[in-house]
Computed example of a mutant assay.
Amino acid sequence: MIVWREKFRALLLHFLVTAAVAAVAAAVIFFVWFPDPFQAMMGGTKLFLLISACDLALGPLISLVIYNSKKSRRELITDYSIVGAVQLAALVYGVLSIADARPVYVAFVGTRFEVVAASDLTDENLQAGRDPYRTRPKWGPELIATQMPTDVKERNDLLFSALAGKDIQAQPRYYVPYETAKEELKRRAQPMEALYKHHPEAKQLVQAAKLAVPESELRWLPIQGRGFWTVLLDANGGPPLAYLPLDPYDS
């Protein structure tokens, strides 16, 4: 005779343990790798929900099948060790996949910002970079700028590389400190009126952001992650103040 109360108790306990492990992974993913708003911009939330939903659903459901109070302690330990190992392997694989998709740099590339994912940078490209841009940051994305080469041949090589899918933001050899692009940022950043003209709804998003900078001092540029958003800056070329879930090119 099947004792469903015992099976559901085992399912609940299994679910709570799985949820606790998933919560630890979520803390790393959402507070370190994908700080707000990059979890939405880069799809980190969807990836984690997909992985954790499978882990939370499939693992505990197996308890309904394998748990039986008539089994010996050794049998239960063996069964749950196998299930736990499979769950842990699946979770580790999922977390490593999310780690590859995490943003490591936010790069100003002249007319826009680009979010660079860990998987966008090859080891070869990193080795060709200059310190401190020879590693993939582990504690959230770092803000940088890029500098076009002055050599004509190198510019042509970069053009062909971009056509092959490796644009300047994926090549650390062209990374420079963000502060060095201040004047270029001041020149390239657009007035808010240009954004409001095509996207009147942007005004509400700006007001909701509750920025300390007066609206008259705000500027904007596009930023590309898994799609286009809008980044708000001050008129002096400072670091980003806010990110709006608005595609400025979508008119």
Score class of each variant (00 low, 15 high):
residue 112 R to W: 02
residue 51 I to H: 01
residue 47 L to A: 03
residue 39 Q to S: 12
residue 79 D to M: 09
residue 57 A to M: 06
residue 60 P to E: 01
residue 63 S to A: 14
residue 95 V to S: 04
residue 113 F to E: 01
residue 102 R to I: 10
residue 88 L to C: 13
residue 61 L to D: 00
residue 39 Q to V: 01
residue 105 Y to G: 07
residue 77 I to P: 01
residue 105 Y to V: 11
residue 59 G to M: 01
residue 41 M to P: 04
residue 110 G to F: 04
residue 38 F to E: 09
residue 43 G to E: 12
residue 96 L to I: 10
residue 100 D to A: 13
residue 72 S to W: 07
residue 83 V to F: 12
residue 72 S to P: 05
residue 53 A to C: 06
residue 65 V to Y: 09
residue 112 R to K: 15
residue 75 E to L: 07
residue 55 D to C: 06
residue 108 F to D: 01
residue 85 A to E: 05
residue 75 E to T: 14
residue 42 M to K: 12
residue 108 F to R: 09
residue 86 V to Y: 10
residue 100 D to K: 15
residue 56 L to S: 00
residue 52 S to W: 00
residue 78 T to L: 15
residue 103 P to W: 03
residue 76 L to M: 14
residue 110 G to M: 04
residue 76 L to D: 05
residue 97 S to M: 11
residue 89 A to M: 12
residue 87 Q to F: 08
residue 108 F to W: 09
residue 90 A to K: 06
residue 46 K to C: 00
residue 52 S to Y: 01
residue 88 L to E: 07
residue 63 S to M: 07
residue 50 L to W: 03
residue 66 I to S: 02
residue 65 V to N: 04
residue 85 A to Q: 04
residue 82 I to S: 04
residue 70 K to Y: 06
residue 77 I to S: 04
residue 66 I to T: 08
residue 72 S to G: 15
residue 38 F to C: 05
residue 110 G to T: 11
residue 85 A to N: 05
residue 52 S to L: 02
residue 64 L to H: 06
residue 110 G to A: 05
residue 41 M to C: 00
residue 81 S to Q: 10
residue 38 F to I: 02
residue 111 T to F: 06
residue 82 I to Y: 08
residue 39 Q to T: 09
residue 58 L to T: 07
residue 85 A to C: 15
residue 47 L to F: 03
residue 107 A to Q: 02
residue 64 L to R: 09
residue 62 I to G: 05
residue 101 A to R: 13
residue 87 Q to K: 04
residue 54 C to K: 00
residue 59 G to D: 00
residue 93 Y to T: 11
residue 54 C to W: 06
residue 89 A to Y: 04
residue 113 F to H: 04
residue 56 L to M: 05
residue 94 G to T: 09
residue 65 V to C: 01
residue 67 Y to K: 11
residue 75 E to R: 14
residue 42 M to T: 05
residue 75 E to Y: 02
residue 43 G to F: 02
residue 113 F to M: 11
residue 75 E to H: 10
residue 102 R to C: 10
residue 110 G to S: 06
residue 85 A to F: 14
residue 112 R to A: 15
residue 50 L to R: 11
residue 87 Q to S: 11
residue 82 I to R: 08
residue 88 L to W: 06
residue 40 A to E: 15
residue 87 Q to L: 13
residue 98 I to M: 14
residue 78 T to K: 15
residue 47 L to P: 00
residue 76 L to S: 12
residue 45 T to M: 11
residue 68 N to C: 03
residue 74 R to K: 15
residue 56 L to D: 00
residue 87 Q to G: 02
residue 54 C to P: 09
residue 84 G to I: 11
residue 63 S to D: 00
residue 45 T to A: 07
residue 101 A to I: 02
residue 86 V to C: 14
residue 73 R to T: 13
residue 52 S to K: 00
residue 88 L to N: 06
residue 104 V to Q: 08
residue 44 G to C: 04
residue 82 I to C: 07
residue 106 V to G: 07
residue 60 P to H: 02
residue 86 V to Q: 07
residue 85 A to Y: 03
residue 54 C to T: 12
residue 57 A to P: 00
residue 92 V to Q: 07
residue 112 R to V: 01
residue 92 V to Y: 05
residue 55 D to I: 12
residue 96 L to A: 07
residue 91 L to E: 05
residue 50 L to T: 14
residue 38 F to H: 10
residue 65 V to I: 13
residue 61 L to H: 03
residue 97 S to D: 13
residue 48 F to V: 03
residue 42 M to P: 03
residue 69 S to T: 05
residue 87 Q to H: 10
residue 91 L to S: 02
residue 65 V to W: 12
residue 77 I to M: 13
residue 65 V to P: 00
residue 104 V to W: 09
